[in-house]
């Protein structure tokens, strides 16, 4: 049985839940009270992850921490079709997973400051976030121009999209205006319309009416 150490309002946990559900994997959840309980900083939890971070997954007799690492592990061991992590595009995939990590350090940090009152340099976090949004918006704009819908060229979305999606979609909770990034908004619209997508709190994907679905 797969076990996920999880927190509902964490975008990094959300990524893992999304992929687990898209891969149709059964798992049990162990909820960790990140805020306001700060349980992830407790001694008990530090035995599971010395970094005191979520998510962590228990799978195949091992503990794997770090959202991006978990995405790679699941996509390479549990996706027989290899759609979520196509090996012929592994370079760009790793590149965008690292990019997602920078998103956590900036856009997500700004959200922690605003929504959960964490103390940090929020102006710096927002400025860093804007630089990343510009890079992603550029990338997606030119991808669309070339007829592509996703971060990595190809028909099917990949773990690169999953990794980048949550904190970008939640950016406004950290006081970052998404209005300048029209290509990002079209991409988040497409992403939220994928079959089986279920939002986390703070995202506003209103389901399309049946008659408008293609």
């Amino acid at each position: 049985m797969i076990r996920l150490y999880d927190y509902a309002l964490s975008g990094n946990c959300f990524k893992v839940r999304l992929l687990l559900s898209w891969l149709d994997l059964e798992y049990e959840t162990r909820l960790v009270d990140f805020y306001p309980g700060f349980e992830h900083r407790s001694d008990t939890f530090r035995k599971i992850n010395p970094l005191g971070q979520l998510p962590v997954i228990e799978i195949d007799g091992q503990l794997i921490r770090d959202a991006q690492a978990i995405l790679i592990y699941l996509a390479t061991t549990r996706d027989p079709l290899g759609q979520w992590c196509p090996m012929d595009r592994i370079g760009p995939i790793y590149q965008w997973l690292a990019f997602a990590d920078s998103i956590t350090g900036t856009i997500s940090a700004a959200r922690l400051h605003d929504a959960m009152f964490f103390r940090l340099d929020v102006d710096k976090a927002r400025a860093g976030g804007v630089q990343l949004l510009r890079i992603l918006d550029d990338h997606l704009w030119f991808a669309e121009w070339a007829g592509q819908d996703w971060i990595i060229a190809g028909e099917h979305p990949t773990i690169a999209d999953i990794a980048c999606f949550p904190y970008v979609a939640l950016a406004e909770e950290g006081g970052i205006d998404l209005a300048p990034y029209a290509a990002i908004q079209r991409w988040t619209d497409r992403f939220m319309r994928l079959p089986g997508f279920a939002p986390m709190a703070g995202m506003m994907p209103l389901p399309l009416p049946k008659e408008a679905r293609t």
């Binding site: 998404l178 209005a179 029209a182 908004q185 079209r186 619209d189 399309l208 408008a212």
Partner: peptide, 22 residues
Amino acid sequence: VALDREVLPEGLVRGRMDTAEL
């Protein structure tokens, strides 16, 4: 306020003009 081809059916585009949000 937008490129014509980026205003997709089913989509909503956000924009601005002076102080007005669109």
